[in-house]
Design a protein around this nucleic acid. Structure first.
Lengths: 127, 127
DNA sequence: CCGTATCCTTGCAGATACTG
DNA sequence: CAGTATCTGCAAGGATACGG
């Protein structure tokens, strides 16, 4: 196991420790579809095509891959009901819900700073 | 300005409104180098090659692009000192600092859940 | 020292078609 | 309904070289 930076200064706090895994988590949050799916599962469990419709224009392939990734990290559960037309339910785990909280905080920040960011961009581009 | 989704249901709360911009912000957080740079600027301002060394193995190209993106969004400032060897300082803006807070919260969550996630992955892969 | 310009590879994601 | 398989493009990013 590679030691995560036995570096001289640790002035950056949390951001320096466990770099790999943290980047992993950040990547998931940065992933377009993961966040969308997590948000949609925030209220109740959903079925595959239900998520597909809600997350348009996601492709089947991407939804499938996204869900498998989330399941792998223990963020969602996949429950197969052996009914006549097959039915699969996806739901957030406790860990998934705790991530949802953070994502919502981030979304809140984005909303609060949206106008300012747009202004900054306009100013920057006008040059 | 485009209205942020005059959609039918808003069951997912914040995650549904202003989708485009929010995804933009999330993408920045998910971006490998942006977070690293923001964290390194958390304590004090830094010079270009200083950031370059601290963020290894980032390439010049990527650091340049990352910094320009952050500057464009008003997250960092770029200050050129007209000294004999050219010197450029990058620093976090107030907006940058406020994002740093969120990123640190996210990093904290990652640390708290690191072990659990690794376990989930191992269990998932062992099948 | 602080970048930009160019080339070139790679991996991600869309489209499409098919299976249990 | 709930996915997997294959093929293909396209753009992000590494390597390298050069300019202010």
């Amino acid at each position: 196991m590679a030691h995560p930076l036995p570096d001289v200064d640790d002035t950056s706090g949390l951001c320096e420790q466990g770099r790999d895994l943290i980047r992993d988590v950040l990547a998931r949050v940065g992933d377009k579809w993961s966040v969308v799916v997590i948000c949609q599962l925030g209220d109740t469990s959903r079925r595959f095509n239900e998520l597909r419709r809600m997350s348009e224009p996601i492709t089947q392939r991407m939804l499938s891959a996204t869900l498998r990734g989330l399941e792998r990290d223990g963020l969602v559960t996949r429950t197969v009901h052996d009914t006549k037309p097959p039915r699969v339910d996806y739901a957030l785990t406790p860990r998934g819900f705790s991530l949802l909280e953070i994502v919502r905080a981030l979304a809140g920040w984005a909303e609060d700073n949206a106008a300012g960011i747009v202004d900054s961009r306009t100013a920057f581009d006008a040059r």
